[in-house]
Design a protein around this nucleic acid. Structure first.
Lengths: 291, 291
DNA sequence: TAAGATGTCTGACTTAAGTCAGCTATATGA
DNA sequence: TCATATAGCTGACTTAAGTCAGACATCTTA
């Protein structure tokens, strides 16, 4: 009755009821659900026909017909892909974008209706982030991003907020942007961002300090994504990128209060070394040889 | 990009992807989704054909045909309702129950797969409860239940755990059951239980103290259901039931630490009165005239 | 008890969704 | 450059899903 699995299945029912209602309302716009799904997927940036097919799980014949229908309606235009003329790229026309905007507005309304009627919506959103991230853990992507990308800035801001909180000191997030931004992009470094269905949930950066020597910085995982092994994934990814930048040794500093981080470094091939900088908040220093 | 509505919509996508996968796996059992839905709804206790139709949102013709199909398969038997021979009641046969059990096993497996791969599953479950309850707020039902119903006991246990926590004292939940159980059922009182899609999320009881005088007890709302106005709904419901029991005045005691409760009573027609018992944890005493 | 309402069923549809074999154009690699 | 693989398209299907009008039995109420 009140066992864990029932509790969790209840979530699926609740969301499905809600989303089912949305699907039905999608029909109100007069287009069958199949075409509506295709139109929305294109609107969300899935433009390659093959990718669309996989994403929507459709047969190639059906896909083709649905696209043909949307073309006849004037919602979509397709053209061969420049690099491979067998593949086709679908794009929304202006009318298509307008239709897509209508669907988006419907979805937003339904989300807003729930959020607006609940007072502690930050708690609700945190719960939503957690569940969406756990469910989507197999679809987390780690991408290279510019330090001035707003999604990176969101993570860096959260990172500074958090260490300010932990150390009871105010770390200036340099509202004008990360002062080290320049050294955190190629060829002197790189910034990696973890995305779960578009939401930034973690980051890590590396910065070249000397010939062959790099320092790992800005390691952060969103609260909703902790416990999924994302930190380890990020570290693996940054090591790979560091090697590509020609780095052979990595260093990093951290603080004893960050126990999860300490544990990760100690079990992931890092060796504790002597203090190598004068960062007053750093207590532990690590090094790892790559390759 | 990271606005509240996108964050919330992301949840719907994540759960739909997950549940969509389940729907597809339902097809693996060789029955079209429509019949599978009907079979599952019957298995979950929706036996009245009319209720089934509303619940699944189907046309009466389609409903009838799907039932006929399941009957032909030997999964379902229908019979006229005893009280109204126009209505029909559908029941699973033994074969039907076996098929239903297969679907349940599939659903459990998929929930278990997610839960099992996440360490802090209590956090995940709490988040799931919160979201499911908020989404299902319009479908919360308040029912009369026996004080020894396991769902009531679950709430009472949680109630005692919580006040033990708040007052730093151990309140004995009387493992053998609520000692006042007898006085919390008709004709001397009643116990109300709030259910959200089957999950108990709150309770309240009333107990006759004298001719026309009742006392409200065991008022509790689950953490996941706070902020939805459920306490007020429960109070309204218990007042109605108290009137039916012939009570004209209600009393209750509470503690200053329970600020939300205090605020509710003060704004819901209750008048603060003198201490009327020797409960050492009670600091405030209220009374309300009914009718 | 007759008139109207209700709940379900059936037949005759329409539409959407999905499948499959075979076609064409393009790319790839020995 | 020729065989083979790949991506998408088309025609000819099947199946599922949904709609609608009317039939019938049963209940309700004036």
């Amino acid at each position: 009755m009140i066992d864990d699995i029932s509790r969790f299945r209840r979530l699926a029912r609740a969301v499905t009821t809600q989303t089912g209602a949305l699907d039905t309302s999608f029909l109100g716009l007069g287009r069958p659900l199949g075409s509506a799904r295709v139109l929305n997927a294109i609107g969300h940036g899935k433009e390659d026909v093959g990718e669309l097919r996989v994403y929507l799980g459709l047969d190639s014949g059906l896909m083709s017909r649905l696209l043909r229908g949307l073309e006849a309606e004037g919602m979509v235009e397709t053209a061969p892909a420049p690099k491979d003329a067998r593949r086709r790229i679908a794009k929304l026309t202006e009318a298509g974008q307008a239709a897509f905007a209508q669907y988006e507005a419907l979805s937003d309304q339904s989300a807003e209706a729930v959020l607006g009627r609940y007072k502690q919506s930050e708690a609700l959103l945190a719960a939503a982030d957690l569940i969406a991230t756990v469910l989507g853990r197999d679809r987390i992507e780690i991408i290279e991003a510019d330090p001035e990308d707003p999604r990176v800035e969101h993570c860096v801001q959260a990172y500074y907020d958090e260490i300010s909180e932990i150390f009871g000191v105010f770390f200036d997030p340099q509202v004008s942007g990360d002062p080290e931004a320049g050294s955190l992009r190629a060829p002197n470094g790189t910034f990696l961002l973890a995305l779960s269905d578009g939401l930034p949930i973690g980051c890590v950066a590396v910065k070249r300090q000397a010939e062959g020597l790099g320092e790992v910085k800005r390691m952060w995982v969103a609260p909703a994504a902790r416990g999924l092994g994302l930190a380890k994934q990020l570290m693996n990814a940054i090591e790979t990128h560091a090697q590509r930048l020609g780095l052979t040794t990595l260093q990093l500093d951290t603080n004893g209060k960050l126990t999860a981080a300490l544990h990760l470094y100690r079990t992931d091939g890092w060796v504790e070394i002597e203090r190598y900088n004068d960062n007053p908040y750093a207590e532990h220093f690590f090094e790892k040889q790559l390759g």
